[in-house]
Amino acid sequence: MTPALGIMGLTVAYDRHKALDRISLEVEQGQSFGLVGESGSGKSTLLKAITGLAPVEAGTISVDGSKLGRSREKAFYRKVQMVFQDPYGSLHPRQTVDRLLLEPLAVHGFADSEARINRALDEVGLGSGFRFRYPHQLSGGQRQRVAIARALILEPSILLLDEPTSALDASVQAEVLNLLEQVRRDRGLTFLMVSHDLAIITHMCERLMVMQNGEEVERLDASDLAARRVSRDYTRNLLVASAGFVRAP
């Protein structure tokens, strides 16, 4: 079976600095794959490279078995969509929710935009009361719901998630994570999720890759991580750190 997303030997370099070094991974249709690492690990660069926003030096990316070229075609964006980290920065400040959701439909020439916008808002639990608000009239969690609605409105099969909850409060984070799981179940989506938080990744993903300095450290099943069956020291350090502070005796 062809994987939904296949990456082979991907290398990304800015000037001479290698942000990604020969990364390979495969995500099956309907699977959720996590990328964990600290800042500078290249985990976000990987998402950028998939969307065509990072300079790929070597390696290939394929979606549903077909290789992507240098530039992305319009059809690509129907298949792959992304939710950004900062809900305060990812919505155009001068556009209403309505306009934000209309834009992708207009670009791809959908006719039934009215119905689709209402459906998308309902799906992310906002309802049509939010349709004509501006982003500054929304809370962080509501903004992220709008961003998810915008990503889903083109009915993609793959969703890239770049730390979608790290800017949110813990209680709102739970709501957004639940929403993401819900839409994934309903639509059979494939997730590629980036986070610095091991707990979130093990909660959301079946498989994950730990990254450091643009390289793969190790690849695990979420159940291995939960049982703390890890082989590398770096991963072990991350596990210890995520448990919180332990006071020196």
């Binding site: 950004f84 980290q85 834009e103 915008r150």
Partner: peptide, 22 residues
């Protein structure tokens, strides 16, 4: 370089559309 312009680009909008409308 803001996320919301990147988001529009990820919708598949053409550069002229991004400049003119966003």
């Amino acid at each position: 370089s803001s996320d919301y312009i990147a988001a529009v680009a990820l919708m598949g909008a053409s550069p002229s559309r991004i400049v003119l409308r966003h």
